[in-house]
Design a protein around this nucleic acid. Structure first.
Lengths: 347, 347
DNA sequence: ATTTAGCACTCATTCGCCAAGAGTGCTAAC
DNA sequence: GTTAGCACTCTTGGCGAATGAGTGCTAAAT
């Protein structure tokens, strides 16, 4: 792990300049242009020497002999860790974020979807948001409603205020009275229980029940098995199409790779999940490691909290070449707003 | 409008051959190759003459002087209308469709999503499915469930067996007893009413209500305003990424156009809606008109029925160059299966 | 000892040119 | 009415020269 000391003042300035320049132009940056553009008081030759040093250290590379330099993955990581200074949001931007998130949203999922759209709009990257971690999702309320003799609608409200519902065909017909007892049974036994494991929980205790209790439990299982499979979306993504505009995805094959990745959801979800665990140090930039599926991609994400506990991440996904100094601010501020808004729905 | 008579037997054979060849290769087709490939007993020169005639009629065109011929939009339309002979599905294909659609699906939306995925898989085009037309969606059951003093979860089941739900914050707290009366009020007054207009309906009759009825109606409005806005998806699309594989979308700008179109949903939904109205004659191929947003795109779609009434379309979207003879069969058969399955959920 | 000017060198990109190949249109023969 | 023959067109791919941006290195300047 590099320490900030490893680089001289001049090296740091130049690395910073190269990154900033490359982020906007997406082209290799040469010594002359960087001097002119940033008004540095060294000659191009000096800068060239320093850039050669930075290349030896692995922070820059040339795309071919005698072309300009491009920051490497390590270069970006160093930049994000030591060099970047966060760029505060303007008042306009703050109020835009507030306004967009204070629209009429009556559901946690609504909020997350709206958040991804907003982030995509503000950053011109793909907006992403992770639903609360499965392990923290608990039953608040279950209710079955009779539709016909053998079909009922079921409703599940969780501790994040999310409401999901579906319908289910049951084996034998259920009277209104029986339904009432079924609802009581489910709520008595399942309130506060982890949604992911609620069916298994009942199944295990099945042997402890007798008579009517046992009958109710069996009925409940028919409902419980079908409910969580009606899965709420685990990962929200919006605005992925904007990535087309980035030159790094200009050729089809690359674009297809990235889109395939996004469509599969798992790799990104996994990255976010991992980031959430280890983000105590609030490291919010994840630069895809070389050799992994996420090579060349970066994620900027911040945890949002409910009742003070971090439960998921919101952020953006885009090419490694991103204006991190602005994006971290946008994402951080947005995540904060999301946290405040979600408090309304949770209990 | 062309009649089949307008073309000679030879012209028809050759148009058909050109279309078939072009559909598989995506390249301009020359006289020599079409003769060889289809074993026609005319010489290339004869075919050339005929192709020139077909060009004059507007069914073929050359991409540049002295290249092979490519079918025009009109050419494809003629082919679909008069020349194409539907290709029956194999038993394997039929049973695959049956199997995929007979999985555990407990919701109309589930079925439609699964259908689009299946169609995308089978045809290598984008699968699309339209939800039942809004005008035909009626309330079967509404139920509000108390969560806290001022928040309730609400559940709406419609005549297609779709279940949607959300939560809503109400102005003043509601007791369990009041909630019971609210539910009764809503089900008494709204069963069978069009979902899209249910809130407005109550609003209009508001002046006829007095005392407790009026109070209930006002409470109901708080719920009803928020429910349909929790809109069920109107258009399902899956596998759009496969379109990247088609050479017509090889360049970015075109691909972006198409993806933008798909993401916007409206143009496609509008086309399907229109097709549903006029599809009495079961014309199931829609070839995007030149000059419109859908230029160069085609849709193959069939209506699915519920209780014998056509209520929506399922199908595929892809480039104009498609193997229509196979795809119409796949889509037709799938739509039939969907109809049968949806009967289960509807009432 | 550090910085800088000068210069030769490298490499991607662009353009024009040429040859090959696929396919056509036309004319004359069948 | 059909076909063989032939000249012509147009795309594609390869090759080489000119261009230009940018480097590395050396020697001079600070």
């Amino acid at each position: 792990m590099e320490s900030a000391k490893d680089l001289s003042e001049r090296e740091r300035t130049i690395l910073c300049a190269v990154v900033n320049c490359y982020v906007t132009t997406a082209e290799p940056v040469g010594s002359r242009s960087v001097v002119k553009q940033f008004g540095l008081d060294w000659s191009p030759a000096t800068v060239r020497n320093t850039m050669a040093d930075l290349e030896d250290l692995g922070f820059l590379k040339q795309v071919h002999t005698s072309s300009g330099r491009v920051p490497t993955e390590a270069g970006f990581k160093y930049y994000v860790k030591y060099l970047m200074q966060v760029q505060e949001l303007t008042l306009r931007e703050r109020s835009q974020i507030q306004d967009e998130l204070n629209r009429k949203l009556n559901d946690t999922d609504d909020v997350l979807r709206q958040t991804t759209q907003l982030l995509a709009l503000l950053t011109h990257q793909a907006g992403i948001a992770e639903a609360p971690a499965e392990a923290s999702v608990r039953v608040q309320r279950i209710e079955a409603v009779r539709l016909t003799d053998t079909r009922m609608a079921v409703l599940l409200v969780d501790n994040y205020g999310r409401v999901r519902s579906t319908s289910v065909e049951v084996g034998e017909s259920v009277s209104g009275d029986q339904l009432q007892r079924l609802n009581n049974f489910m709520n008595d036994n399942l309130s506060g229980v982890e949604v992911a494991g609620m069916a298994d929980g009942v199944r295990q205790r099945l042997k402890d029940y007798f008579d009517e209790q046992r009958l109710l439990a069996q009925r409940a299982l028919e409902v419980l098995d079908v409910l969580p499979q009606q899965k709420t979306k685990q990962l929200f993504v919006e605005g992925a199409m904007q990535l087309f505009d980035q030159p790094e995805f200009a050729d089809m094959s690359r674009a297809r790779e990235v889109f395939g990745l996004i469509e599969r959801h798992d790799p990104i979800a996994a990255m976010l999940r991992e980031g959430l665990q280890s983000s105590a140090g609030r490291q919010r930039v994840f630069i895809g490691e070389e050799g992994t599926a996420l090579e060349g991609l970066s994620v900027v994400a911040s945890p949002y909290t409910v009742n003070g506990r971090p439960v998921g991440m919101v952020g953006i996904l885009g090419p490694r070449r991103m204006p991190y100094s602005r994006l971290t601010s946008v994402v951080d501020y947005t995540a904060g707003m999301v946290s405040r808004i979600l408090e309304r729905f949770a209990r």
